[in-house]
Amino acid sequence: MYRDSTLLGQTVLNINLGEIGKLLVPVPPRSLQDQIAQVMQEAYGDRQKKLQQAEQSYQKVIDYVFEQLGINLERTQRKRNALVPISVLQGGRFDFEAVVTVQDISSQFAEHETTLLEEVVEQTNERITPSIDSPDEVVNYIGLANIQSHTGELANFEPVQGKEILSSSPKFAKGDILFGRMRPYLNKVWIAEFDGICSGEALVFRPNKSKVDTQFLHTLLLSQLTLDQVVPLQSGSSLPRVSASDVLSVKLPVPKDLQKQQEIGNEVKKRRSEAKRLRNEAEAVVTAAKARVERMILGEEIVE
């Protein structure tokens, strides 16, 4: 079984190429090959359509939240301007992207209630080293590869043995929000569905439930508004990262009315469930097609 060494901190297992060359592969008649190709082509076409529908559904969830807040994101897009007050530069970073972004974001919601992320969440950084602390236990380890970009859904997750994780890993609890700090433009933000540990490239935020609704906040963090503030602050060329302090300084339109947030959050949860259903259906189409192909090759399904 292959393991990504960048995620689990272990050596990648290899397969002997000579042994692969000795594998027996069934080669059906050309007519059957053509039919198999047609089945898979149609399946992947259907999958792509459903995935597009799902992506649109996730985006509509974000649009819904801002509509409920009375905010038109199209009218609040960043406008680049090289002329900024000297007060903005003093004591800050002399970085064109960062300065202009922070200035524009801070002014575009002047008529709305805004708050810093650090005012509604607590960053937690309790860590363990599973290979030392619990080598024989099964642990829920989340790497950035397990979080889908732009949707915030869990992907390709399986628990692993503690001895497989050599690095110090932050702990998280169910309901925490994991925010990918490496390559932040990939937009990986996940609400923890269980307790576990994660890659050090994820920041762990614990929402203050007396101030903010988790589903509501999660949607804001997945939005272009957050990307516009965070991405310009990344540093590094090959694997850019953003600091925890920069993420915590993000300004978000969070109403003081917690009940309003919760009402929006409940609707968000229902709409995300529908989008997730579409994604699951997309994958099920391909799975069913592969099963059919196997039956065709084994002669269990008669093909005309």
Rank of each mutant, 00 (worst) to 15 (best):
S57R: 06
Q35N: 09
L13F: 07
G45T: 15
F94G: 05
L24E: 13
E111C: 08
G70M: 01
Q38G: 02
I62E: 13
I71F: 00
I128P: 00
Q123P: 14
L89T: 11
I36S: 02
Q108T: 13
Q59G: 03
K49Y: 11
Q108R: 14
R127S: 09
D136P: 10
K50L: 12
K22N: 06
I20Q: 03
I62Y: 02
Y141M: 00
E74T: 11
G143N: 01
N81R: 10
G21W: 11
I20Y: 02
V61F: 02
T115L: 09
N81H: 04
Q56D: 09
D95L: 06
Q56Y: 12
V27D: 03
E137R: 08
N125G: 10
K49G: 09
K49A: 09
R127N: 03
N14T: 15
S31N: 09
V102E: 15
L17C: 12
G91Q: 03
V61P: 03
E118H: 12
D63K: 08
E42R: 09
I20L: 07
G70K: 05
I142W: 02
Q41R: 15
V88L: 13
P135E: 05
D133F: 04
I86L: 08
R80C: 05
Q90T: 13
I71S: 03
A54H: 00
Q123H: 13
V121G: 00
V121I: 05
V27H: 01
T114M: 05
E19L: 08
Q103G: 08
I132E: 15
T129D: 10
I20K: 03
E137K: 08
S106Y: 11
T114E: 07
L69A: 00
I132N: 06
D46E: 14
D104G: 06
F96G: 02
D63R: 04
Q123N: 10
K22H: 10
Q38F: 15
V25G: 01
S107F: 12
S31F: 12
E113L: 12
Q33P: 03
S106C: 07
K60F: 14
V120E: 00
Y44P: 07
K79Q: 08
S107H: 12
L17K: 11
T11H: 13
N140K: 06
H112R: 07
I132M: 08
P85M: 00
S106P: 05
Y44V: 11
Q68K: 04
S134Y: 14
N72E: 14
L13Q: 14
